[in-house]
């Protein structure tokens, strides 16, 4: 009997700041949908996207839903791992210790490795 094919590994790359464009939320909702269908999925925050990991977000005055709260729910949905471009986080002064979701900081070489390892990459 042939061995079962390994499952497709998905990577959602998020480059949008949390309240600058609807794609910020769309990216996370897409990752949640992939996880809901029991497909392995990781998330990588890069560029402006690292601003999604700011702690204590308060979106009330802007009339939009709180991205921090959505991110805090990721572990409930079997999102395998959350990564962040460490250089971008440092450049924006994002304190990862206060992030709404635990994110592993990667070096540029590790970012390349992660992208090489995945089968399907969704870039937002």
């Amino acid at each position: 009997m042939p061995a079962a094919e390994p499952p497709t590994r998905h990577l959602v790359v998020v480059r949008r700041a949390p309240y600058g464009a609807s794609l910020a939320r769309t990216a996370i909702e897409t990752a949640l949908a992939v996880a809901a269908f029991e497909q392995p999925v990781d998330i990588l925050f890069m560029g402006d996207g690292v601003l999604q990991l700011l702690g204590q977000q308060d979106s009330q005055a802007s009339g939009s839903r709180n991205m921090g709260r959505l991110l805090a729910s990721l572990p409930l949905y079997d999102i395998e791992a959350v990564y962040v471009d460490g250089q971008a986080a440092a450049a924006y002064g994002v304190d990862l210790a206060n992030s709404p979701v635990a994110a592993t900081a990667l070096t540029p070489a590790q970012v390349r490795e992660l992208m090489d390892r995945c089968d399907k990459l969704l870039g937002f």
């Binding site: 497709t8 998905h10 794609l23 897409t30 949908a33 990459l121 969704l122």
Partner: peptide, 21 residues
């Protein structure tokens, strides 16, 4: 339709190509 259609398409295709964003 829902995002499930995207997930389903990804499991059946060889390549997913994203435009824009």
């Amino acid at each position: 339709s829902g995002l499930g259609q995207l997930v389903d398409a990804m499991t059946h295709c060889d390549r997913l190509v994203t435009f824009g964003g």
